[in-house]
Computed example of a mutant assay.
Amino acid sequence: MSRFPILPRHQSGFAYIAAVIFLVVIAGIAVVLLRLTETQQSTVNQALLASRASLAARGGIEWVFNNPVQRCSQAPLSTSNAAPAGAVNHLTDFRAESGFLVSVSCSFRAYNEGEAIDASGNSSPVVKRIYRIDAVACNGTANTCPDTGSVPRADYVERAQVATICLLTDGAPCV
């Protein structure tokens, strides 16, 4: 016979298993929330960069609107129906201020629209030029926009805007 009486054993340990499972579930939820926060922050950063790029492209268009005759063509206004060579202006001042390089290009097409009669009774054709202004803003590392070398970067943003303006041969807006 043994000196100690045999007592019935109580089951134990279920609470430990439940606590471990509970901790694993809580850790999983924490990881998911962390990833969602990271994704949301990345989305907000991309949206902010996109809006800044759009504003930089708009600034390029407004730069041309300030003096479209000088900035879109080197030749004086005439009745010529030919577009200029289409030189692209890279506005590096925008990069210094906003971090975006803006490339602006212009083209135009001249149209004869009716005749104007002056005070002495002479008539001359009314020539209107329709200017098309293309502005592309990007935060790439090259000196041109669009920057194909920076496209794989996660923070690369590029936005383009197009505008038109109509001017008469004397530089006045069309009516």
Results as ranks from 00 to 15, higher is better:
Val64Phe: 04
Pro84Ser: 08
Ser120Arg: 01
Arg35Gln: 11
Phe94Cys: 11
Lys128Pro: 00
Glu113Tyr: 10
Val69Arg: 02
Asn67Glu: 13
Ala53Gly: 11
Ser42His: 12
Glu115Ala: 13
Ala57Lys: 02
Gln40Trp: 02
Asn45Phe: 09
Ala116Lys: 01
Gln74Arg: 09
Pro76His: 02
Gly60Asn: 03
Asn89Val: 14
Asp118Trp: 02
Asn66Lys: 02
Ala110Gly: 14
Val69Pro: 01
Val127Tyr: 02
Tyr111Gly: 00
Ala50Arg: 13
Val64Gly: 04
Leu49His: 11
Phe94His: 07
Leu48His: 10
Ser120Leu: 11
Leu49Gln: 13
Asn122Asp: 12
Leu91Ile: 15
Cys72Gly: 05
Tyr131Ala: 02
Gly114Tyr: 11
Ala53Glu: 06
Ala87Lys: 06
Val64Thr: 08
Pro76Arg: 03
Arg71Leu: 10
Cys106His: 04
Val64Ala: 09
Ser103Ile: 09
Pro76Glu: 07
Arg52Ile: 02
Gln70Cys: 00
Val64Arg: 02
Gln74Leu: 13
Gly60Ile: 06
Glu97Asp: 15
Phe108Tyr: 11
Ile117Tyr: 02
Tyr111Phe: 14
Gln41Ser: 14
Gly60Val: 07
Leu55Tyr: 13
Trp63Thr: 06
Ser103Trp: 07
Ala47Phe: 05
Gln74Trp: 01
Leu77Gly: 03
Ala57Trp: 04
Glu97Val: 10
Gly99Asp: 11
Leu48Glu: 15
Ile130Gly: 00
Asn81His: 06
Thr92Val: 15
Ala87Gly: 14
Pro68Ser: 03
Ala116Asn: 05
Trp63Phe: 08
Ser80Arg: 03
Leu48Val: 15
Phe100Met: 11
Glu62Trp: 00
Tyr111Asn: 07
Glu115Thr: 14
Asn81Ala: 13
Ala57Gly: 12
Val44Glu: 15
Arg35Glu: 09
Asp118Ala: 09
Tyr111Thr: 11
Phe65Lys: 07
Gly60Leu: 03
